[in-house]
């Protein structure tokens, strides 16, 4: 039992550390759009360590990693950023989250090539982010 837990923890550590590296990455959008995303996110730079934004058709998924000590106000940060994003991209359906799970899932989106699979994944992520408790 202990050994298995240790192995699982080690796997998670390795997998977790690979993700965020203090950068903002935007994919799937036009150049001016990605600049805009970065601009919006930069304003809150001190509380956010890294961010990923993905444009998929009419959807815009934005995930941010909040600095551990700022996580107290995670809900507030999410709310503020969602409002800003919606203002900046009125045509897109914005889904913004600071959740680790959703961060991982969105980070993986780039690897998917097929259109339907991508779309399905986006729907799953959106429904996940809406789930309460």
């Amino acid at each position: 039992m202990k050994r298995k837990l240790a192995i699982a923890a080690a796997c998670l550590l390795l997998a977790g550390c690979g993700a965020g590296n203090g950068e903002i990455r935007v994919s799937g959008g036009k150049p001016d759009e990605s600049l805009k995303v970065e601009e919006v996110l930069k304003e809150k730079d001190d509380r956010i360590t890294s961010a990923v934004a993905v444009f998929v058709q009419e959807d815009l998924l934005v995930v941010v990693e909040v600095r551990p000590l700022s996580r107290f106000s995670k809900a507030k940060i999410e709310e503020e950023l969602t409002k800003k994003m919606e203002k900046a991209f009125p045509d897109q359906t914005v889904t913004l989250s600071a959740d680790r799970k959703i961060y991982w899932e969105t980070d993986k989106l780039d690897e998917l090539e097929e259109e339907d699979k991508l779309h399905k994944k986006v729907e799953t992520i959106k429904s996940l982010s809406k789930e309460e408790t």
Binding site: L12, D99, K101, I102, W104, E131, E132, T133
Partner: peptide
Amino acid sequence: YFYMYFFDFTER
């Protein structure tokens, strides 16, 4: 973390 990584659970 185990549940978040291997299943569809969010932090919440």
